[in-house]
């Protein structure tokens, strides 16, 4: 069953179209990745889905309903969570307060507490630093916090924007292991990455985006061996 569907989504900043009519779909329980170079429109696409940019209502279908142009705070209540590019942790709030904000829309205190423990078991580093302000964490720890915080809302659809950005290789590996673990728990994920190889290794399907358009799509394993993808995104010559 399809959880998210984009139908000819267009997003413009002023007069400039950053996304020029793209269509894609994500089925329930899938981990789909969207790859492409800098400036291809990947982040813009995610922001539009999450309700941060104005778009036509029926360009985005979520859980069967048109949500284009709905504001972000309403969509969170419907199970949609975005981990923004650059992580966006609240630097002056403690780790625990950041996580509490992730659960802002929930009123089931007991279950929230259980989820907090779950996030801490997923990321023991965060448990050690629970009362430290988030601004003092390393980049990798902030990424863990941003993902953990998004999980606190118990999302049905998790949108991840460049989770590997600016992180050391070891930390990238750790983050991607967690993403896989979250996916296995049944959370649907749409992953945007510049690190195409990594993304296609964890994802089941992929879309390739270039200058605002989707130019290629298919099962991740096929994209990994596609000569065009290998040349353009995986840094391999033919």
């Amino acid at each position: 069953m399809t959880l998210l569907e984009l139908r000819g989504l267009e997003v413009a900043y002023g007069g400039i179209k950053a996304v020029k009519g793209i269509s894609l779909s994500v089925a329930k329980g899938e981990l789909v990745c969207l790859i492409g170079t800098n400036g291809a429109g990947k982040t813009t696409t995610l922001k539009a889905i999450a309700g941060l940019l104005p778009v036509a209502a029926d360009a985005i279908l979520y859980d069967g309903a048109p949500i284009g142009g709905r504001r972000a705070f309403e969509l969170v209540r419907r199970g949609l969570a975005l981990v923004p590019e650059g992580r966006g942790v609240f630097g002056q709030l403690t780790v625990e307060e950041n996580l509490a904000m992730g659960a802002y829309v929930r009123s089931d205190a007991a279950a929230v507490k259980l989820d907090l423990e779950r996030v801490f078991s997923l990321f023991p580093r965060l448990a050690e630093r629970r009362s430290q302000s988030a601004g003092t964490l390393s980049g990798g720890e902030q990424q863990m916090l941003a993902i953990g915080r998004a999980l606190m809302s118990r999302p049905k659809l998790l949108l991840l924007d460049e989770p590997s950005m600016g992180l050391a290789p070891l930390m990238v590996q750790k983050i991607f292991e967690t993403i896989l673990a979250v996916a296995r728990e049944g959370v649907t994920i749409l992953l945007v990455e510049q690190n195409a190889r990594l993304a296609l290794e964890v994802g089941s399907r992929g879309y390739v985006m270039e200058t605002g358009l989707i130019t290629l799509s298919g099962p991740a394993c096929e994209l990994l061996t596609d000569p065009k993808v290998r040349a353009a995104y995986l840094g391999e010559a033919d």
Partner: peptide
């Protein structure tokens, strides 16, 4: 806490479901 979150980053606060 939501007030402080909003003052630090209103856009991300919106992503938490906070009606800023």
């Amino acid at each position: 806490i939501a007030m402080r979150a909003t003052s630090q980053n209103p856009q991300v606060a919106g992503l938490m479901g906070i009606d800023i």
